[in-house]
Nucleic acid binder design. Structure first.
Lengths: 114, 114
DNA sequence: ATCCCTATTTAGACTGGCTAAATATGAAGT
DNA sequence: ACTTCATATTTAGCCAGTCTAAATAGGGAT
């Protein structure tokens, strides 16, 4: 089965990010790792999609972000920690309902393989 | 629930068209009606998306088209009748498997509403 | 010194669904 | 006749959002 990415991700990526942040605040790269892990390799998400999506979520007030305090004993540049806002939590619930609706509708039209 | 269209349709529209043609050959407008009916109003498909999608399917050899013989007793312009090719039938089966994969993957990440 | 892994940023390309309007035609109503 | 309506197709240009690709940054390992 081909990896899921590109057009197939459209309209779903932001929900996936919100869902991954439900497990707890995280920086972008960690969100990426969570999604890759949760997708069991079936997901192909690129940073060029992830970070702009995070900015959109932040601009929409669904997540808030803060620069991590510089712990000097880890490698790499400073990380931006994102966490869900109450609005983001509500949006996630709505997104899950929409997803069910979407699956029912498209799945219903597409019909059974046999 | 909001109607399904736009981004949500991306990557799925061609599969939906193939699926609707499985019921029998049809012209574009009839495909549109079948999909609207099958979607029970939950689908918002525009001609500006449908016809280009049909052209892509034709160019890819998944459907073939022919102008309908001009029966003089019906209103409207000539219609182009599309039907599945064997290749299109095989693609439809693959698309259904991909859909299952997609639903399992995204649904799994998105998780349960409660 | 160099490489590697982590982490973020962003300009530009590309896909494909949408907007919107034009074009075509016969039936039905006035 | 004329208008209106429903059917049916075409297509130029728009636009949102994912991807490509490269730059930037910094600490640890060899």
């Amino acid at each position: 089965m081909g990896p899921i990415g590109g057009n197939a991700l459209r309209g779903h990526l932001e929900s996936l990010i919100l869902s991954s942040l439900e497990r707890g605040a995280a920086h972008g790269f960690e969100v990426w790792r969570r999604l890759e892990a949760a997708g069991s390799g079936a997901l192909r998400l690129k940073e060029g999609s992830l970070y702009p999506a995070l900015y959109r979520l932040e601009a929409a007030g669904l997540v808030r972000a803060a620069w991590e305090d510089g712990a000097t004993d880890r490698r790499g540049p400073r990380r931006r920690i994102y966490h869900l806002t109450p609005k983001g939590t509500r949006r996630l619930a709505a997104a899950r309902a929409e997803w069910q609706h979407f699956v029912t509708t498209i799945g219903g039209i597409l019909g059974a393989p046999a």
